[in-house]
Write a protein that binds this DNA or RNA. Structure first.
Length: 567
RNA sequence: GAGCGCGUAGCUCAGGUGGUAGAGCAUCUGACUUUUAAUCAGGAGGUCAUGGGUUCGAAUCCCAUCGCGCUCACCA
């Protein structure tokens, strides 16, 4: 059996969810005989890209890639990113300049509202540009589509006329989902007011399927209008809009969050009423914040994509999106280190896996079948991958947000490594020091030394003053022991090799140094720490500790807003 | 009212298509005492929420129950 054949059988049986989805699409096209498959992701008018946007496109791309491999690339695939930029603006966003400018155009399609940022032809065009640059920064492969363009160009006309012809069927599907008062005024067609340009939510007085028009009345002036449903003179309400788009474009696959289950169902029924077939679907669970609440842009809870990318790579975020899309997951700062290390573990395992296992490895899906080789450090003849957790630990004990200090530790372990030879590790170091700065250091607890400890620290500082800046870690370590040995509190007569004349030194000595100087309950080999951190710097650290500055500064910097460390 | 998810070690969670319960942290023991936590070795800890069903065999599939949580029912 050739590798290609065994791989294809593995692909047909692969249990990873993108393959399960891909097989759904394969079964669909085997029924229809079509030679092209269209994936869609959609974006609402409130418009700005967020972490869920990333998740939806990343997941859809994973399915798309699995499908391409499953079919041996014999079937062309496209991913369309559809922007609802013709929706009427319902309220002025809080986070924009020139709010009064926008307020004057409330109710109009986004593409008919001036750009409050002054950089694009319209507010809608501005948001579209933001969306596209967002998607582009991750290298997603997609085609952008504007609802305004599609409506105005006539690409939707045939489907719009068909919906008008099936008006009664559409209403029969929609009306039961409303309460009585809403049902009385509902219309799937929203005419654009020919005088004001506003997207009108008004009851229809008449429809003329033959002429392709609807009749309605301006509620303020009572003037009656007859408007064609075609040519961008009219748009559709949300659920019929979605259905019409599926029907008009022939969308084969679109995923949606759990909050849209009812919409998917109703839109699917409408597609059938039009005589089409709804796309294959996938419902993913929502993300929750640390308290289990739905993440909402308006509330501002949870984690933004900017925050994730401050502390970890896009690949690690892809992993988060890959894992268990149907289970609700907390999306908060503390999941980042774990996700990063999971990603590194999967990357590390990939080269050792059989092809069949590789198809189930998330990095295969994250990197479109071609994950990069892991970066390992060579030490004592074997390779080790440095984890994010390890780097956080190093940053914590070194109490440093300087990447160079961490690299110092790394080079001591594997002398030949550098940011140049290990660029991804270098980025990992940068992420780690930021995470340390914002989440680890605020949780340090420094304490003041008592009299005995003060005396010992003064002696330590004096001792260091006599040592050359180039002193070896071993020499410093020996000197540390000699400082503590005569101090009764730190003597340990039970230590191996200890004699009554020459007692051992207990760990209490080092624990005190960690607590007073580093704000940690444990720490690095202290002689090594001083050699790396610098003798003069360590003496300054001791001076600060004796003056109470470490305790005071830490309290000033971190006490008021503990927890959420956005710098 | 409708729908969805979750329940596995003290904690946080992994555990495609059924085949003797796993990791990290925490904890305990031991090794090493001019020594360490970027070390090594080992241990303990779970009726996999509960009750049924299918099966030679169920954490896994099916049904029911309990508990927790979320979403939708105005708009998108």
């Amino acid at each position: 059996m050739s590798p290609a054949v065994s791989l294809s059988s593995a692909v047909r049986e692969a249990g990873a969810w993108p393959f399960v989805e891909a097989r759904k699409i394969l079964a669909r096209i085997e029924r229809t005989g079509q030679k092209e498959v269209l994936f869609e992701t959609g974006y609402g008018p409130s418009g700005l890209p967020h972490i869920g946007t990333f998740g939806e496109v990343a997941r859809t791309s994973m399915v798309r890639h699995a499908f391409a491999v499953l079919t041996g690339e014999a079937i062309k695939t496209r991913l369309i990113a559809f922007s609802d930029d013709m929706d009427g603006l319902r309220k002025v966003p809080e986070n924009i300049p020139n709010r009064e400018l926008v307020a004057a155009h409330l109710g109009k399609p986004l593409t008919q509202i001036p750009d409050p940022f002054g950089t694009h032809a319209s507010f809608g065009a501005h948001n579209n540009a933001r969306l596209r640059s967002f998607l582009d920064q991750f290298g997603f492969d997609y085609e952008f589509a504007s609802a305004t363009d599609y409506y105005k160009s006539g690409r939707f006309d045939a489907a719009l006329l068909r919906m008008l012809a099936r008006y009664d069927d559409v209403m029969a599907i929609m009306l039961p989902s409303f309460r009585q008062e809403r049902a009385a005024t509902y219309s799937p067609f929203l005419p654009i007011h020919p005088l004001t340009g506003i997207v009108m939510q008004v009851p229809l007085e008449d429809i003329d399927a033959g002429a392709g028009t609807i009749a309605w009345r301006d509620p303020k002036t009572q003037e009656r209008f007859i408007t064609p449903v075609t040519g961008g003179h009219c748009k559709l309400q949300w659920k019929p809009d979605w259905a019409m788009r599926w029907y008009a474009l022939g969308v084969d696959y679109e995923m949606a969050g759990k909050d849209l289950i009812d919409s998917v169902k109703l839109s699917g029924e409408i597609v059938r009423a039009l005589g089409g077939t709804p796309p294959e679907g996938f419902i993913y669970e929502l993300f929750l914040d640390e308290k289990g609440q739905k993440i909402s842009k308006s509330i501002g809870n949870g984690l933004t994509i900017e925050e994730w990318l401050t502390y970890a790579s896009p690949e690690s975020l892809s992993l988060f999106m890959y894992q268990k899309p149907t289970a609700a997951k907390r999306l908060f700062f503390d999941v980042i280190p774990r996700t990063v290390d999971d990603y590194l573990t999967f990357l590390d395992a990939y080269p050792r896996q059989e092809p069949k296992e590789q198809l189930g490895n998330p990095v295969w899906h994250i990197h479109a079948g071609e994950p990069p080789p892991p970066e390992v450090l060579r030490h004592a003849g074997r390779g080790t991958e440095i984890s994010f957790g390890m780097l956080l630990n190093l940053a914590a004990v070194a109490n440093s947000e300087d990447p160079q200090v961490l690299w110092g530790f790394l080079r001591r372990y594997a002398p030949d490594v550098s940011p140049q030879s290990h660029p991804r590790l270098d980025r990992l170091v940068s992420y780690a020091v930021r995470y340390f700065r914002d989440f680890v250091r605020p949780n340090k607890t420094y304490r003041l030394p008592d009299e005995t400890e003060r005396a010992a620290l003064v002696q330590l500082s004096d001792m260091l003053a006599d040592m050359p800046e180039s002193a070896s870690p071993e020499d410093i370590q020996s000197a540390l022991y000699d400082i503590a040995r005569p101090i009764p509190r730190y003597q340990d007569f039970g230590a191996k090799g200890a004699t009554p004349e020459r007692p051992g030194v207990s760990n209490e000595w080092f624990n005190m140094l960690y607590q007073v100087l580093l704000g940690e309950s444990r720490g690095p080999r202290f002689g090594s720490f001083i050699a790396l951190y610098g003798i003069a710097e360590t003496r300054q650290l001791i001076a600060d500790a004796l003056a109470g500055d470490l305790v005071r500064r830490h309290a000033e910097e971190h006490a008021p807003q503990a927890g959420r460390g956005r710098a």
